[in-house]
């Protein structure tokens, strides 16, 4: 994300000076480092799903219906004889792409709106923030359900819904940072020097508010995973036969007494990235603590 600003300003490319400090502070937080390791592991198995997964996600095998965990099927099979392990791997691919897409969309829109609102103030601020208030007054799941009802369930539909539902959260964070930042002398001195407003917003304000925003990104990714899974669980998310962790959980819930693996493994699979994102987010928040940054 920060490379975006570096390529724009071709004067000098930043050395990792402050990042080194950041790395040291972050690496002291063991839980966060654990989260980062867990996330890296999940990303790797997701990317390599084609090679790791023993079966196709949709291949049905009526000779192996509702089989428990075994050497052939490490997480067992479902009622259509599909390999749950393979479906979890490909499910990750879908849930990650939806969540990351949605959160990045919210990040981009929310940050732009928030920065502009905080920087310009006045009626623009009032207008944007009242709009944000309206969006935030709906619980995000209800909002998501309503939006899905409007645009119909599809993979990118959910991403769009997440993007809209989470935009206010980023706008809030960006605005509060932007308000305090735009009173800083260096922003005023840039104005005096004739630096254009878009440049001030993108090249100066954005890198300075990035810290708190990254924290929000990681925490929202955790929520995004949960929301995506919930929508699928309710049947309005990813449509079958695409593998969806939420839907797998829903399918398994009625026969949990007979086939516990059908619920347990997708459930754990949802939990792992949520834990990873939350611990990373907490660690980042501690690291970005303004008191530490100032010193």
């Amino acid at each position: 994300m920060s490379t975006e600003t570096d390529t724009q300003t071709d004067i000098e490319i930043d050395e990792p000076g402050p990042f080194h400090e950041f790395y040291e502070a972050f690496s002291e937080n063991r839980i966060a480092v654990f989260g980062l390791g867990l996330l890296a592991f999940l990303i790797i198995i997701t990317l390599l799903a084609d090679f790791i997964a023993p079966y196709s996600a949709t291949a049905q095998n009526y000779d192996a219906v509702l089989e428990g965990p075994s050497m052939d099927h490490p997480m067992g099979t479902d009622e259509l004889g599909r390999d749950i392990f393979s479906r979890v791997l490909f499910g990750y691919r879908i849930i990650f792409s939806i969540t990351v897409g949605g959160v990045m969309m919210a990040f981009t829109m929310g940050t732009l709106l928030g920065l502009a609102a905080g920087y310009y103030g006045g009626w623009l601020d009032e207008f944007l923030m009242r709009g944000v208030d309206v969006l935030m007054s709906f619980p995000s799941l209800i909002l998501a359900l309503a939006l899905i009802a409007a645009i119909g369930p599809s993979r990118w539909g959910i991403a769009l819904v997440l993007g809209i539902a989470y935009t206010p959260i980023f706008a809030r964070v960006a605005r509060s940072e932007s308000v305090s930042l735009s009173n800083e002398a260096f922003i005023r001195s840039l104005e005096v020097r004739g630096v254009s407003t878009p440049r001030i917003l993108i090249a100066h304000m954005f890198p300075n508010v990035l810290g708190p925003l990254i924290v929000t990104v990681t925490l929202q990714l955790a929520f995004g995973i949960l929301t995506t899974a919930t929508l699928s669980f309710l049947g309005v998310g990813v449509q079958p036969p695409s593998p969806s962790l939420g839907l797998m959980l829903a399918d398994g819930k009625d026969i949990i007494g007979r086939a516990w693996w059908m619920s347990l493994f997708p459930g754990v699979a949802i939990m792992l990235p949520v834990i990873a994102f939350n611990t990373i987010g907490d660690g980042l928040r501690d690291t970005f603590d303004p008191k530490q940054v100032r010193n």
Binding site: E12, E184, A185, F186, S189, L190, H204, N208
Partner: peptide
């Protein structure tokens, strides 16, 4: 506070 903390002096 009158210099961008993330920009090198140059």
């Amino acid at each position: 506070t009158s210099l961008d903390p993330r920009y090198k002096i140059g």
